[in-house]
Amino acid sequence: MKKETVPVRNSLLLLLTATIWGIAFVAQSVSMDYIGGFTFNSIRSLIGSLTLLPVILLLSKPKSAEEKNRPQTSSNQKILITGGICCGIILCLASNFQQFGIKYTTVGKAGFITACYIIIVPVIGIFLRKKCSPFIWIAVILSLCGLYLLCLTPGEGFAIGKGELLVLVCAFLFSIHILVIDHFSPLVDGVKMSCIQFFVCGILSGIPALLLEKPDLTDILAAKVPVLYAGIMSCGVAYTLQIIGQKNMNPTVASLILSLESCISVIAGWLILGQNLNSREIGGCILMFGAIILAQLPQKEASV
């Protein structure tokens, strides 16, 4: 029973992550009216890192005699720091490529291309000798069809321009981010690694923000509500849930669940911004949820 409940619990954590990220698209859109992309990513990441500090202090207290006697080797600390830095660098590149790619393309195209990490992850996984069952590949195809219905409007061209290329790079980087987390998350404390990755991402994004955008405190305060949501919820909470939820999970299944952020962002736009869903978009949502359910089938069989 325990082996079966772990994937279910992790799937729910990843679904919650996708929900938070989907709603964050609204916050991201609003904040860009006041501050630049580097500034936004720097502040939200540093807030996310600070948010996790009290959580780390709370969770760091040993709860059992076994944990008290467990040695903290320098090797474990080195892996933790290495994992946090690697994730932070990749997250910085991916989030900023996405942020500026959206400026040169439509939101629909950006959403579709970004979510293409659901197909990039298993393709990269082939070269890393990670096996995927036929059910997962069918789920990938279904989810791509769902994303197409959800994000692209009939008659809209799909020419690859500057914005599309930037977001395509973002999708590739997010694929690497998922695989790097898959490598490090079983070896280290997920919350600590998440804190480190946000600190690294915030510092790296802050350098071009200061040099190129020269952020103004008045503009930052004007965007405080979306920035705080993006920092506390989208970064501090969601990315940590991603690291915890990906433990012992097939990275392809994880990427499929996380891709629901595109679906949820449409729902958030409908509920918060009053953007109605048409039958095409509803069909895309149904395909996406169907793909997630299908992707869970081989996971249960593999754990027997």
Rank of each mutant, 00 (worst) to 15 (best):
S45P: 08
L260T: 03
T106D: 14
V225N: 05
Q98D: 03
L150Y: 05
I85S: 10
V30K: 15
G269P: 01
T82H: 06
I181C: 11
V180N: 00
M249P: 05
L204V: 10
D219Q: 11
P62T: 11
E281C: 03
P154I: 06
L258S: 12
N96F: 02
L212D: 10
F112G: 09
E213A: 10
G125E: 14
L53A: 07
G108E: 00
I118Q: 04
F158K: 00
V30I: 13
P251T: 06
L273Q: 12
L277Q: 03
V107I: 09
K300R: 09
I203Y: 08
N76Y: 15
A24V: 08
K131H: 14
V225K: 10
W21M: 02
T114G: 10
F127E: 12
S45T: 04
P251E: 15
F172S: 02
I56S: 03
L91Q: 10
S42I: 04
K63M: 05
I118C: 00
M288Q: 12
G274R: 03
D182M: 10
V140D: 12
S265F: 10
V237C: 15
F127I: 08
R9V: 05
L128P: 00
H177V: 05
P154N: 15
S262V: 12
L271P: 02
I203G: 07
F100A: 00
T240N: 07
V30D: 05
R280W: 08
I35V: 12
R9F: 01
A230G: 09
S60G: 11
G290T: 12
Q296T: 08
N96W: 04
I136C: 08
H183N: 13
F184C: 11
L256M: 00
Y239E: 13
L91D: 03
K214S: 06
G48T: 03
S49H: 04
P62D: 09
G22V: 13
F158W: 01
L15R: 10
S259K: 06
